[in-house]
Design a protein around this nucleic acid. Sequence first.
DNA 1: TTGTAAGCGTTATCAC
DNA 2: GTGATAACGCTTACAA
Lengths: 345, 345
Amino acid sequence: MSDKPISIRDVAERAGVSPGTVSNVMNGSKPVNPALAERVRQAARELGYQADRAAALLRTGKARIIAVLVPDLDNPFFTSVVSAVETSLRDQGYELIVASSNGDEATEHSRLAAMLAWRPAGLVVIPCSDDFSARAGIEQAGVPYVIADRITREPTADTVSVDNEDAGTIGARHLLELGHRNILVAASVLTLGNIRERCAGIGATLGRAGLPPPVILESGGHFELAAARLSQWLDANRRPTAILALTNFTTLGALAALAERQIGIPRPISLIGFDDYAWMRARATPLTAIRQPVTEIGEAIWARLKARIDGDASPPAHIQLKCSLEIRASTAAPSVEDGISTGAA
Amino acid sequence: MSDKPISIRDVAERAGVSPGTVSNVMNGSKPVNPALAERVRQAARELGYQADRAAALLRTGKARIIAVLVPDLDNPFFTSVVSAVETSLRDQGYELIVASSNGDEATEHSRLAAMLAWRPAGLVVIPCSDDFSARAGIEQAGVPYVIADRITREPTADTVSVDNEDAGTIGARHLLELGHRNILVAASVLTLGNIRERCAGIGATLGRAGLPPPVILESGGHFELAAARLSQWLDANRRPTAILALTNFTTLGALAALAERQIGIPRPISLIGFDDYAWMRARATPLTAIRQPVTEIGEAIWARLKARIDGDASPPAHIQLKCSLEIRASTAAPSVEDGISTGAA
DNA sequence: TTGTAAGCGTTATCAC
DNA sequence: GTGATAACGCTTACAA
């Protein structure tokens, strides 16, 4: 409970040198006599000295802080991205400051401003909408940033996302190959570009097979809402032979709706989930799922950001990572009668 | 991409006042002539001024930063606590800096030191072990902190956790009432005090019913490991009529092991999970689960920390929140033959 | 190679 | 009520 933190001057005094020399020893910014350097390090160790990073920041103007803004800290996809970024950062002496916009534009603005006030070296943002109205504020601040997952129209910064169209394609193709012709797409919200792209990939794939566009159900961003909307839809319409979910929450919604109606998986309804979590495997019928490469996403984000921080001035890069299809037991060929009836319809 | 951030002096100049006055206006630390104040605010708005918080910190020594250290940013329980804390903080002008110790003592040390170098106003830590060897470093820094979830022996700071013994008790009692006598406890690691307390609660409850202590299987902290250990155990021993899982990952492990063996839930084996997530409900057999009050945990953490930051010097408080049992479909009375055979054994 | 001193943007303490 | 001015702890020219 010692109240005054140890300053560089305390160390200097104890080692019998000047503060400047201590700084040079600690940062290696200038060569220092080895014997002296050792004495300084010794003194620092004895006193438990830790440089005040705020003071250093003030002087240099370059904080070793990365700010991360996500729409929801309770969504495992977002936290897994945060985790992946954190892992990349940790060895390079950076700190992570995080905030959640709670999917709200106004909050996004204010949280962003608050984080920017720390003059971070870089910023990672998963915007809460494609408008990304906070962009102006960031660019005015002149902070390098990368936009992840949800890509703004005409982005003026680096972006990292998955190839959403391809993600839709591999899901649709798998169902097609199994013989499905009557597919329900469980989208979250169609105002999001990445969701629309996933839909586009599905639509194009069906189109190439000479099929009409799929039914797309906009089921909302939350689990409960998705479950309710899907339940309602299933009760009101002829049942599809397969459901293709486009987010982790809609996957849960579909699962809940099917379970509640005691509809079997993969028959009479096959299900493809989105993302890949342990709970998808820990089931009697493990879920076939479209997996986003989370670790690679985090690494790509950091690679771009680090390059910008280090002065890279090349035009914005737009990195797209491929999703993979994890084929498990929740997809199968449709029942014969379903296949015939829908195929002949 | 304007490179120089706007400083308090720029605002002062534009408003035709001194920097000190601007500071007083922005922080309300001293009364200022309303007309002047408005002029200052106007100028600040026009320039897009945002006070540099690092500079303010340097001067005041009081950062509006809270550092949070958790063992794993991919564990939804930990991230939900982070999220709950973030929600509490956001309106009070604090920022959150987070790091993961990855369950490793050395990493815990170094991450802690790095975060402490920002002179945060407070610290919340979920230690990676009960030893919590980093404690000394924190106390030397004189930062108010609260220990959450995993409680150190003889804690010298505020702690917030659930009543783990009670959590074990309500789970065991539920199984007892259903008629189970042959219960397998899926613990993660017994070096953790909270897990041992949960076990103690179970043991005591069984004891009061005149039953011997339960079989406790230490299945490890990760999903894959838990699944493997539980599988192995189930193959090598007489089957229990119920499994009581003590963490979210062991819940998943149990689910996976049972699914793989095509063992039904709740018969022949009932299952109680730990924590409460959407995936536990989105199942044909929704899971009965011991729910930790995550939001309340986050609020309690922040309440204690805020009080300490504001100078509360009362003796360390040790807050224990009660878990609740969410009874769903994964628990039922054991099959008759099982009930008889084990009851008579 | 080492010491000295200026200055980063802010807030607090003074005079006024 | 307002304006100078010093100081926070650090880095970095520049002087020695």
